[in-house]
């Protein structure tokens, strides 16, 4: 089975996000980018399928993404067999928010048409995709069946059985014929760790190749008017002082509500 895992970087949400002065994007220059956490889950699920039944796992990214080399080398170190960077032969711009989902889907679709996969597994969403999610956009371009918000995948000969999650812990077990596209919410186990020595080895093997593709079937996107921070002035009363002062105030809040014994 050939499994393709499209991956991308997103701003590290632990850091403070700064907007550009003209409010049409985020300040990308000083921002730390990390692998989209749902893509990390998708790769893990693909590697679990490889571990249990044998599969060829191909990690795919776009050349215009920040940190993409590091992301793909790490995927190789974790157990992906090959990694491919897709360069946009039409030289489309990346825009203030990075590559739009429509363009990304069109690039990956072009790659998959040239080198078809039995199964495409990607993160269900990304923190910076206001124009929609990659997995089902990709599936529609290629006319493949798709299921998203998936929390486990089991492979048979010509089908996979996936568990699709809904609110409140309810889930559906769905059997999907291959080829298919799956959007992963979380893998059956936490993403594995890649030792730094294995990442260095991966950088030396040359298993990362670059390929120019022409996007296929890009569609109309959104027109950005303005970006701004969330209004948070609405509610919270901020507690002041050092950690000890703040702890005193929180304890008093709980005590006043009868939530503390003693």
């Amino acid at each position: 089975m050939r499994i393709v895992v499209p991956m991308k970087a997103v701003p590290d949400l632990v850091e403070e996000i700064e907007l550009s002065a003209d409010e049409t994007g985020i300040e990308r220059e000083y921002l730390k980018f990390v692998l989209n956490e749902w893509d990390a889950q998708a790769l893990e699920e693909a590697l679990l399928l490889k571990d249990s039944g044998g599969a060829e796992v191909v990690a795919v990214g776009c050349s215009a993404d920040p940190e993409i080399d590091q992301i793909l080398y790490t995927a190789l170190a974790k157990g992906a067999d090959t990694a491919v960077k897709l360069a946009d032969a039409s030289a489309g711009g990346t825009g203030p928010a990075g590559i739009p989902v429509a363009t990304r889907a069109a690039l990956v679709a072009a790659f998959l048409e040239a080198q078809p996969a039995d199964l495409v597994i990607s993160g269900v969403q990304a923190a910076d995709d206001p124009d929609g999610q990659l997995p089902s956009a990709l599936a529609a371009l290629l006319d493949l069946p798709h299921v998203s918000v998936v929390v486990s995948i089991e492979a048979d000969a010509d089908a996979v059985t996936v568990r699709q999650e809904f609110a409140g812990g309810v889930s559906h077990e769905v059997q999907v014929h291959l080829p298919a596209v799956i959007g992963v919410q979380s893998a059956r186990q936490p993403p594995r760790y890649a030792p730094i020595t294995r990442i260095r080895q991966a950088m030396q093997t040359g298993a990362l190749t670059e390929l120019a593709v022409t996007p296929r079937g890009a569609r109309r996107g959104l027109v950005l008017r303005r970006m701004h921070g969330t209004e948070t002035t609405g509610r919270a009363e901020m507690l002041t002082g050092d950690a000890g002062d703040v702890a005193d105030q929180i304890v008093e809040l709980l005590r006043a509500r009868g939530l503390l014994r003693g």
Binding site: V101, A102, A105, V124, Q125, D129, P130, D131, G132, Q133, L134, P135, S136, A137, A139, A140, L141, H146, V147, S148, V149, Q164, E165, F166, A167, G183, G217, R219, R220, G221, L222
Partner: peptide, 22 residues
């Protein structure tokens, strides 16, 4: 939620319409 995350982007392609999520 699950239904919109699953169908939204596919419908945007097939019905040829822009999609805003979240």
């Amino acid at each position: 939620a699950t239904v919109g995350l699953d169908l939204g982007a596919a419908l945007a392609v097939r019905w040829d319409a822009p999609l805003a999520a979240y």
